Simulated assay, not measured.
Amino acid sequence: MDQEAFGHLLAAQNAAGTTGDILELGSYLGRSAVLLGDHLRPGQRLTVCDLFDSEAGDADNAAEMTMSYRASLTRSGFEANYLAFHPELPTIVQAPTSVLADGRVPDGSCRFVHIDASHLYEHVAGDIEVARRALSGNGLVVLDDYRSEHTPGVSAAVWQAVFTGGLRPVLLTPMKFYGMWGDPEPVRRVLLARDWRAEGFTVDEDTIAGAPVLRLNNALRPAARRSGARRLLLDLLPPVATRSVRRALGALRTWRRPGAQRA
């Protein structure tokens, strides 16, 4: 759903004639960067900042890198993935995202900033400040992992920015927070103009400290109904036999699928 939300908001910016660059803090292997690159217009620049396979500048960040990313995160992997979809690479800053506080991204130059770098509170708070300075008045910031149980530092930095830093929520999904420091009402209208429900999503409206915010989620699919005979069989069999029956039924469904490989 975030792929759809990114595309919808970026396309709406282009349709409205909104100008500005795009910035990504934390790119991993390039999936979101590829999508951001799809929406660049002539004269606009995508800048990505990530440590990739460089060493982290502090012990806590190094520990997080080692635990989660070190084995797979390489600049060569990012570049190969990006070039599979685009003819040239974005501007790459291989360094801690804190270096962007030096002004190399001009104030007010960006229309969209995606933050998915460190999960440590101090780093995320700094990344949010980089985004605030980089964004134009109607620009959007998107933050990943704002509500995951293993990333409390992101949650703390995001809600601190909301309640003390003027960041205004626009859209919440299970994984990402969308907000801005400008007037969110035009973006709300853009989001509500799309029939998300027809595409299998739910859209709800909530309020945070009196300000409206939209919530986007996947629609729940009804559970598959079992036949009466199958329910009785699974209820009566001992647990070990029940598991065997479930595995056999699952294998049969896979075998019957169109295009499934046959032994």
Rank of each mutant, 00 (worst) to 15 (best):
D2W: 07
Q3P: 07
Q3S: 13
E4V: 02
F6V: 01
G7K: 04
L9I: 06
L9Y: 04
A11W: 14
A11N: 09
N14Q: 06
N14P: 03
A16H: 04
T18G: 15
T19N: 10
D21S: 11
E24H: 08
L25Q: 03
G26T: 15
S27F: 04
S32D: 06
L35I: 08
R45N: 12
T47E: 08
T47M: 04
V48G: 00
D50Q: 07
E55R: 08
G57A: 10
D58H: 15
A62W: 02
M65F: 12
S68M: 11
S68P: 08
Y69M: 14
Y69L: 05
Y69Q: 07
R70I: 14
S72V: 15
L73S: 13
S76H: 12
A80H: 14
F85G: 07
T91S: 06
T91H: 08
A95C: 13
T97H: 04
S98K: 06
L100S: 04
G108R: 14
C110R: 08
I115H: 02
I115L: 10
H119T: 12
Y121K: 05
V124G: 00
A125K: 13
R133M: 12
L143M: 15
D144W: 04
V158M: 11
T164W: 05
P169F: 14
V170M: 06
L171D: 00
L172E: 00
T173W: 00
R188C: 03
R189I: 02
A193W: 07
R194S: 04
D195W: 09
D195S: 04
W196L: 06
G200E: 14
F201H: 13
T207L: 09
G210W: 12
P212L: 05
N217D: 13
L220I: 12
L220V: 11
P222F: 08
R231N: 06
R231S: 11
L233Q: 03
D235L: 15
L237H: 06
L237Y: 10
A241T: 15
A241L: 11
R243Q: 11
T254F: 09
R256E: 13
R256G: 05
R257Y: 10
G259E: 08
